[in-house]
Computed example of a mutant assay.
Amino acid sequence: MSTFKDADEVYAYIGKAMEACVSDPKFVEATKDGTLVVLIKQTDPESYILVDFPGQKVLVGDAAAAASSTVQLRMSSDNANRFWQGKLNFTLAMAQRKVKLDGKRTTAMGLLPLTGPIFETYKAILTEAGREDLLVG
C-alpha cells in the first residue's frame, strides 16, 4: 500500500514543497540562466509534477503531464516521500533503478547539493498538515 491515498495528497505535500524550490533564492540563482524544467512522474499513486525553474512555477496533474520538460524523473511516491525528507540516497537509488532520470542529467544532478533546505520545508508541510505518519524515522 502506498504512503499517499491519492494523487491529490502527492500534490498537496510534494507539490507544495516544489513550490518552495522555485521560490528559494539559492535555486533561483542556480537556475536563472538555464532551461531546467523537471517533470516528476510518480507511481502509486500515479501523479505528475512539473517544476519550471526559469518560469518559477509548478504545475500538477494533466497540465504537468502535457507540458514540455528538459528532465524527466520517475520514482514511486514512497521513494519521493523518502527523498524529500533526506532519507533516500539519490545516486544509490538511481543505481538500484528505484529512480530513473532522463534528459539533462548533469544539470539536474548539479542541483542535488541545494536540496537540503527543502527537506526541512517538506517535513514542516507534513507536520502542519497533521501527517506525521508520512515522516520517515
Rank of each mutant, 00 (worst) to 15 (best):
L36Q: 10
A108M: 13
A66T: 10
L59R: 05
P54K: 04
K16P: 08
G110E: 06
Q56S: 12
L135R: 08
T43R: 04
F119N: 13
M109G: 07
D44W: 03
I40D: 06
Y122R: 13
T91I: 15
C21W: 05
G130Y: 07
T43C: 05
A129R: 03
E9F: 08
A124F: 10
K123W: 09
A12R: 10
F119E: 14
S69F: 04
M75P: 03
G116T: 13
L101I: 00
A95T: 04
V38P: 07
E29D: 12
N81D: 13
Q42M: 15
F119M: 08
T70M: 04
G103P: 09
T43G: 07
G55S: 12
D44K: 09
G55C: 10
V99P: 05
L39G: 02
A20R: 10
N79A: 10
L92T: 08
I14L: 12
D6G: 03
L39C: 08
M75S: 01
P54D: 05
G137S: 14
I118G: 13
C21P: 00
D133G: 06
S77L: 12
T91F: 14
Y13W: 15
E128A: 15
Q96V: 00
I118Q: 09
I118Y: 10
P117D: 13
L39S: 07
K98I: 05
V10R: 07
Q56A: 11
G130T: 09
P113R: 09
R131H: 11
F27Q: 02
D44G: 02
L73I: 00
A93P: 06
Q56C: 04
K104N: 15
F90C: 10
E46K: 12
F53R: 00
F90A: 15
R97F: 09
D33N: 14
A66L: 08
L126N: 14
D24V: 06
P45L: 03
T70E: 04
A80S: 14
R131G: 12
Q96I: 05
K100L: 14
A20C: 03
F83E: 06
L39D: 00
R97Q: 13
L101S: 00
V58W: 05
N81R: 11
V136C: 13
A95Y: 02
G86K: 03
E29H: 11
T121E: 15
Q96Y: 05
I118K: 09
V60M: 11
K104T: 10
Q42H: 06
K26R: 14
G61T: 09
L112Q: 09
S23L: 06
D78Y: 03
E128W: 01
F53M: 06
A129T: 06
F27N: 00
K87I: 14
A63P: 11
T121V: 15
C21G: 00
A12Y: 05
L101H: 01
G55P: 06
F83A: 14
L50A: 02
T107H: 13
D78I: 04
V28E: 03
S77D: 05
A95M: 15
A20N: 03
V37R: 13
G110Y: 04
T115K: 07
